[in-house]
Structure formats: C-alpha cells, structure tokens
Amino acid sequence: MSLYNETDGIAIYPTPMIGMVGLLTDISKAVTISAKAAHDLVYLVGTPQDDFNGSALQKLLVDQPSGGLRPLDEELVEQQQLLVRKAIERGLVASAHDVADGGLALALAETVFDTPFGLTTELDYPASWYFAESPGLFVLTVHPIQQAEFEGLAGAKARRIGEVTTDQVLNFRSLDQTIKLERAKAQQQYKEALAWQLT
C-alpha cells in the first residue's frame, strides 16, 4: 500500500487496501452480480440515507470531497451482511451486488449490464438518493417463486423495490422524478468512462 502516489504533481487520495480471502466449499451456491431472468424481483437490503460526503456524486459536482461521514452502525451492517449470506446459502438469491461507488443507481445498472434485461425500480425518496453511498446496502434479485420464503427470512431488513424487465431500459422512479436510460447506452458510457477522462 502506498499513500504517496502522485499524478501530474497532484497527490491522489489516500488508498488503503484491505485484502480478504474466503472459501466457497459448494460452487453451486456461487452468486454473481448479474440478473438472471426477466420478472425476477429486485430487493434492497438496508435503508439508504442522504450520504453524499466523500461520494462519487460530490466529487463530480464540486470536484472536491468534503464533510464527515455518518457514524457507522456496525451491528446493523453485520446483520444485513448475514442476511445476504443466509439467503444465498438457502438458494433464494439469483444475483447479489453491494452498493458502493456511485450508489444504488450504479449497483442497479451493473446488475443488468452485459445481460438482455432492464430494470424498473421505485423509491419513496428523492432521486438524488439513488446516488447516495450509504454503507451496508445490497441489491438482490429473487425469483418470484421464492418471494415468500425470502421475505419471511428478510423481514424488515429488505424491501422489494422493483423488477427485472425485458425492455432493456433503466427506469428509476422516485418521489420527485424518474431517471430513464437505455441500458446499452449507459453500459457503453460506463465502460468507456476512463478513456473519455484520458482524452
């Protein structure tokens, strides 16, 4: 790890790295981030908040991360992680993705990148919260046949926010507006973003 790298004489942000290794004894239980089937249900594990300090959105808008982070509820985050693990172990999850850089919007988009699908979701929050980077959140897709069993296991820790669709459109609804993008176009911009920044 190095905290002293520079680009064009400007120091990069500190980048501590944590490496982890796990053992998956049953490969049949491996779950990827990609949606598997149209009409699968989309669930959000955890509750987003207006966490923008240090986020990709803040960097994009003001070019300088600032502000403090909200105190982390370690017990709650651990419970959410354990729920995801239990649901996967019981075969209730078709795909799983953590919410990180770019927030929920990017996690949802990545769920259908390189697939023939789209997504329709709805949040009872402002549209900006799709880009908040609250810790401990996960996006899961679940086959409708397993809905009741998954919801029984998850309780209040997860809620259904949408559905995988066949129209190849990202349709993110919220309290104040709807974000609608063609999946293929969003995927192209995502994959070519680095090249654009270097030109």
Rank of each mutant, 00 (worst) to 15 (best):
A100Y: 06
L119A: 01
G91S: 06
R70F: 15
A30Y: 11
D63R: 14
W129V: 05
K29R: 12
Y125F: 12
G22W: 02
L41V: 07
V169M: 12
A195H: 13
D51I: 02
T165Y: 05
A107C: 06
A186Y: 13
A193T: 10
F150V: 03
Q64R: 11
G102C: 07
M20D: 00
V164N: 06
A156D: 11
L41G: 06
V84G: 01
Y13L: 14
P71C: 15
Q49V: 08
Q177G: 09
R70V: 12
M17V: 15
E151P: 04
Q187L: 04
I88G: 05
I33H: 15
P126I: 03
Y125G: 00
L57V: 03
L72W: 14
L108I: 05
L3N: 13
I161W: 09
P135T: 11
H39R: 07
S34C: 05
D51N: 08
V139L: 06
E6K: 12
M17A: 15
G152L: 03
I145Y: 15
A154S: 07
A105T: 07
L194S: 08
E192L: 09
P65S: 03
T120V: 00
A109W: 11
D8K: 12
V99H: 03
E110N: 09
P65L: 05
L82G: 01
F117L: 03
Q146R: 14
K86P: 02
A11C: 14
K36L: 00
D114W: 14
D40M: 09
A35V: 04
Q64M: 10
M17C: 10
E89R: 14
G155N: 06
F113L: 03
T178P: 00
E192R: 08
I12W: 14
D51K: 02
Y43N: 06
R160V: 01
A148C: 10
F172E: 10
T115S: 02
F150T: 03
D124P: 00
A193F: 15
L181V: 13
G136R: 03
A56V: 08
V84N: 00
R90E: 12
L119M: 04
N171K: 13
P14A: 15
V142S: 02
R183L: 04
V169Y: 10
E6G: 11
L92H: 12
S95K: 04
A132V: 00
V45C: 04
L175K: 11
T115K: 04
G68I: 11
D114L: 08
A105L: 07
L123E: 02
L108E: 11
D167Y: 11
G152I: 00
A109I: 08
L76H: 07
V84F: 03
G19Q: 08
A94W: 01
E163H: 07
T25M: 07
Y4L: 14
I27F: 11
L41D: 06
T141N: 01
V31R: 01
D98T: 13
V45R: 04
G19M: 01
T115I: 03
S128P: 01
A96Y: 01
Y4Q: 12
I161M: 02
P48Y: 05
D51G: 02
D26M: 02
R90Y: 08
V112I: 13
L23K: 03
L82Y: 04
V112N: 08
Y190W: 09
